[in-house]
């Protein structure tokens, strides 16, 4: 009848992105983990997603206190360092995907202002347990687990 039919071939990545990253079932409960829980998780994923206005709406924005220099080095995206965030390291990225990415982070951070790597921050945190807790999570009810204390216990065990 008509020659105008829906298609999924024509550069439909825009749709896939929105459908899979912004729609679909989300389980907002302690039994589940999702990219919405980015106070603690999905930090690198968040760097790959560009539209922060909407990201902020869904609690995906960079938490206040994110060290943008370090993040910029970690994701090889120098412009991120120009972003308007205070230069205070937080524990939001601790322990997330430390494997596989270490080499690159190490290399890149050698040219950055700060010499820290993810591992060094781990050490920092251990030296002063809970020291960064006050500054990190701003959105209420968005911290399914506060990893600083948990991991401390794990390490001691």
């Amino acid at each position: 009848m008509t020659d105008f039919q829906p298609s999924r071939q024509q550069a439909d990545l825009a749709d896939v992105l929105e459908l899979l990253l912004d729609k679909g079932i989300v389980i907002n409960a302690d039994i589940a983990v999702s990219i919405g829980d980015t106070e603690l998780l999905g930090v690198q994923l968040r760097a790959a997603i560009a539209s922060f206005e909407t990201a902020a709406k869904y609690g995906l924005a960079f938490p206040e206190g994110t060290d943008m220099d370090r993040l910029a080095a970690a994701v090889d995206e120098p412009e991120l360092a120009e972003s308007d965030r205070p230069n205070i390291p937080i524990d939001a990225t601790r322990g997330v995907n430390v494997t596989g990415e270490d080499g690159r982070i190490q290399r890149d951070s050698s040219t950055a202002d700060r010499e820290h790597t993810l591992d060094e921050f781990e050490d920092d945190d251990h030296a002063s347990p809970g020291g960064e807790d006050d500054g990190s999570p701003k959105d209420e009810g968005e911290t399914p687990r506060q990893s600083a204390t948990d991991s401390q216990t794990e390490d001691d065990a």
Partner: peptide
């Protein structure tokens, strides 16, 4: 050390 950190991270998030 890395391995231990990774395991801890996974355990952290259950």
């Amino acid at each position: 050390e890395d391995r231990r950190t990774t395991t801890t991270a996974a355990a952290d998030h259950g």
